[in-house]
Design a protein around this nucleic acid. Structure first.
Lengths: 332, 332
DNA sequence: GAGAAACGTCGTAAATGGTCGCCATATAGT
DNA sequence: ACTATATGGCGACCATTTACGACGTTTCTC
């Protein structure tokens, strides 16, 4: 492999000059620049990133920690992050935290030990305190899907409470009053926020929240199944169900279909997240759009702006949006 | 940040000795080893990976190139790769090729420039020749989802032809003879192989393949919609449809449902890939299992064995498996 | 039992391939 | 001619690995 030294020899200039043209330093004449570029091309020179990183103390890499890689949720986010960073010649290193505090911390340490310039974290189990302390270290972090007041500047998040409100409000506007709820795990912030929104919508029209009509799932399909079975076992009336994410809706609907029910005629459903499948499943899901990919993109742009000094605008907070399709209809 | 030098000072030994204990070199007495370990702990020492990589010419990183990150397909694969490599303290750098030759080559170059120890590639557009040449370079590669005879050792692949055969054979066994086919893009190897299997199953029972009953999609939901509309427009009889992947089945079924048809009573469907949603959609999809996550894992293990010298067994070729659920029934 | 060979343990110093500040020099503008 | 600015060279880092050799102890051999 050719080194910078070889290039400088061939081009008849010094090492520093070669380094300057690589780093787009302006103080290089066009003529020498061309000579160097030609030499690089002739040798098929490729700078050694390790040496660059060692000398410059910058790795051009950012670590991305997510809860899981399978599932429909993180793919679009990773795709946007990769695209944004890649276009600036930075690379992304991935790590998975499995929604477990110990593993999440372990992953952060891992990423740090690999010398990432910054971290993008979508973590659920790690405490606010840890994150606040981490943000004070020399490695910048940006949080997706989480709001911590003390470090709000580096938080990219969705107004989940509003989303939860919108889902239930939509059903209320459709005439429903007996609305069941299949929640995400109580330990996850977004899950409790969405539930809060649900309660607010209920309160707004004077309907009291009935804990018996609320099931705590874990955001996976199977818990939609469980949740639905639970709800039916309560022997209470309800004409609509809102689920804290689309995957649980999918599980819940499958239970109803197996019982010979018609959706949405017999029961209305509203989901959350608007994952790609929501459009193709039958009935097409009415759901709350969660612009997860945009948040991923924004996290990357945040880094481009604040760490790599690009002159761009970023926004931190995203608004949910109701996507009306066919899984919820007026109460008949 | 503490350096190896600081550690050596505190422990009262030389740099080489500290390096030796880090690299588990046996030639160091238990006593000095403990001294060094204590010093490292006291300083919170973390070796600088860039310096390590520069000196050892090994980055402990592997580049993973996939066609896309969103969609249900690559997530499980990435998850397995990450887990396997991570357990050996290696990290993965991701890149996306978008099924385009230029972008795929660009991504390979990108990954190479980042100094990956090896590459895991799931590429579709890059030519065999390029890959063969690439495999002769100093950076090992392993190919997922592709078979190239000249470099078969580093190919991890599924017997797609057999899978295509199984899908159609299942329908034949259920009494169907008029079977439509929605294919993947002709330029993708796996798509043509699956179609070959379909044709073989047909030929086996003396049914001639009717091009009018075959639509070339692009593996996405929308082309399932298109494909179904095309098939209906042909005014031909068919009692079953096999789609080259589950996403297209999803699109195809939605068209039927909108027309008021009952699935599988009016039309049987068999898919391919067995993506997670296939289990939760209604009707639950009969499909061919594509052990994509296992192939991802095996690719990682291949590297662990051949590059990082672990003593483990790996297998290259995977067999598809029919998963019978509810989207295909006996011809009525 | 003495001398030599072998071995285990550890230190020295030379890579590894860059970046970057500092300084000298060339060039251009006024 | 004087000064500001553009240009290029020199050499000190950056944090590690690793070949080589020093040194002391053990073991083998005659």
């Amino acid at each position: 492999m050719a080194t910078i030294y070889d290039v400088s020899q061939l081009a008849g200039v010094s090492l520093a000059t070669v380094s300057r043209v690589m780093n787009k330093n302006t103080n290089v004449s066009e003529k020498t620049k061309q000579k160097v570029l030609a030499a690089m091309a002739e040798l098929g020179y490729r700078p050694n990133t390790f040496a660059q990183s060692l000398a410059s103390n910058c790795s051009n890499s950012v670590g991305v920690l997510v809860s899981q890689l399978d599932g429909p949720y993180y793919g679009p986010m990773m795709a946007e992050i990769e695209a944004a960073l890649r276009s600036d010649n930075r690379h992304v290193i991935i790590a998975v935290g499995h929604s477990d505090a110990a593993q999440e911390i372990d992953s952060v340490e891992f990423l740090l030990s690999k010398g990432c310039d910054a971290l993008i974290l979508d973590v659920e189990a790690i405490s606010d305190d840890y994150l606040i302390k981490l943000s004070q270290s020399s490695t910048p972090i940006v949080l997706i899907n989480r709001y911590i007041a003390e470090i709000s500047d580096c938080c990219i998040y969705l107004n989940n409470e509003l989303g939860g409100y919108m889902a239930t409000r939509h059903l209320i506007d459709l005439g429903h009053r007996d609305i069941a709820y299949i929640s995400g795990p109580a330990k996850k912030h977004d899950a409790t926020e969405r539930l809060e929104g649900h309660k607010r919508a209920l309160a707004e029209v004077g309907v009291s929240f009935d804990p018996a009509l609320c099931f705590e799932g874990d955001y996976k399909e199977d818990s939609g199944v469980e949740g639905m079975n639970y709800l039916f076992s309560q022997n209470k009336t309800f004409t609509a169900v809102v689920c804290a994410n689309d995957q649980m809706v999918s599980g819940a609907i499958s239970v109803c279909l197996e019982r010979g029910m018609k959706i949405p005629q017999d029961l209305s459903f509203v989901g959350y997240d608007n994952i790609p499948f929501a459009r193709y499943v039958s009935p097409k899901l009415t759901t709350v759009n969660n612009p997860i990919h945009e948040m991923g993109k924004m996290a990357a742009l945040w880094l481009l702006k604040n760490l790599y000094k690009h002159d761009i605008e970023v926004e931190n907070v995203f608004e949910p949006e109701l996507v009306v399709r066919n899984s919820a209809i007026r109460k008949g």
